[in-house]
C-alpha cells in the first residue's frame, strides 16, 4: 500500500538547498519518478518535488531503499548541475499551515527564515564532500600478536602447561584477562594513531558508532570526514599506508553530500 497518490499536491518534499536565484527543472529524477525542480528565495533555492502531505512509508524495505537511492541521486544531480548542496534527510515534507498560503510560499518562508543559517552552512561545506572511513581488523591476528609479544602471557602459558587440569582452568581465566587487557590497550593505541593520521587530511570529523560486521572482523573506527576536494588524494594515500601495515581492512566511500556536517548548529569560530 505504498502507492503515493498526489491528489492535491499540497506537500513539498525537500531534498536539499542549493545556490541559485532561478527556478530550475531537473526532470523526472525524484522519488517514484517525481518531477524535481527548485524554488528560489533570493540567491538560494530549495530542491523539491510536489507530493501529498502524507510522509513516505512502506513495509517493503526494497521500496524504501529505492526511495533512499532516488533521494541520493537527486542530490548527486543537483550537485553536478547547480553547485553546493545542503542535503536534507529522507522524508522531509513541508505543507501549508492554512489555505491562504501556497505550498511554494511555505518553502520560500522557510528559506527566508533560515537564510542566514543556510548561507553559513553553505560557506562551511563549499568545495568539500563527505567521506566514510572505516578501519577493521582481524581479531585472531591481534591475539596472536599479543601472545607472541607479551612476556606476562608467555609466562602464564608456560606455567599453565605444567599444571593439573583443575589448576589449569584458573590459569586459563588469568590468561583470558591478560589477553583482553592487552587487546584493549592495543586497540586504543591504533584508534588514536589512525584517528590522528586521518584527521589531518580533513576539515572536520565525526566519530560514528562502530558497527558489527558479519565477516568476523572487528570495526576499530568509523568516521565521517568532511574533506576538501584537493585533499581527497592525500587522505587516500594515508589510508593506503594504514592498509599496507597488514592486518587491517579499510572501507573508504564517497563522495557524499555532507550529511553529517549540516545538522549541527554553526558554532561561531573564535576571533570571528
Amino acid at each position: 500500500m505504498a502507492e503515493i497518490l498526489c491528489i492535491r499536491c499540497q506537500g513539498r518534499y525537500v531534498y536539499g538547498v542549493t545556490i541559485g536565484d532561478k527556478e530550475v527543472r531537473l526532470g523526472a529524477i525524484g522519488i517514484d519518478g517525481s518531477e524535481v525542480y527548485t524554488i528560489p528565495y533570493g540567491d538560494i533555492s530549495a530542491i523539491v518535488h510536489d507530493c501529498s502531505t502524507k510522509p513516505y512509508r512502506s513495509t517493503d524495505d526494497e521500496m524504501v531503499k529505492n526511495w533512499v537511492r532516488a533521494h541520493q541521486s537527486v542530490l548527486d544531480a543537483a550537485g553536478e548541475q547547480l553547485g553546493v548542496v545542503i542535503p536534507l534527510g529522507f522524508d522531509t515534507i513541508l505543507e501549508p499551515r492554512d489555505d491562504a498560503t501556497s505550498p511554494d510560499q511555505v518553502v520560500r518562508d522557510w528559506l527566508k527564515l533560515d537564510y542566514g543559517r543556510l548561507r553559513e552552512v553553505m560557506r562551511k561545506i563549499e568545495g568539500k564532500n563527505e567521506y566514510a572511513v572505516q578501519v577493521s581488523y582481524e581479531p585472531g591476528l591481534i591475539v596472536k600478536q599479543i601472545s607472541e609479544q607479551s612476556q606476562e602471557i608467555r609466562k602464564i602459558k608456560e606455567e599453565m602447561a605444567a599444571k593439573s587440569p583443575g589448576t589449569a582452568y584458573m590459569y586459563r581465566q588469568k590468561l583470558e584477562r591478560a589477553v583482553k587487557a592487552d587487546t584493549e590497550r592495543l586497540a586504543d593505541e591504533w584508534f588514536s594513531d589512525f584517528y590522528g593520521r586521518i584527521k589531518k587530511h580533513t576539515d572536520d570529523v565525526v566519530i560514528e558508532k562502530t558497527r558489527k560486521l558479519n565477516n568476523g572482523q572487528m570495526m576499530l573506527l568509523n568516521l565521517s570526514c568532511l574533506v576538501a576536494r584537493e585533499k581527497v588524494d592525500s587522505l587516500g594515500k594515508e589510508l593506503e599506508e594504514i592498509n599496507n601495515m597488514g592486518g587491517f581492512s579499510i572501507h573508504f566511500s564517497g563522495p557524499w553530500p555532507p550529511y553529517s556536517f549540516v545538522a549541527k548548529p554553526i558554532v561561531t569560530v573564535k576571533g570571528e
Partner: peptide, 10 residues
C-alpha cells in the same frame, strides 16, 4: 546518512 542525518528544519 539519508535516514539519520542531514539538515534539520525549523
Amino acid at each position: 546518512r539519508v535516514l539519520e542525518k542531514g539538515l534539520v528544519l525549523n
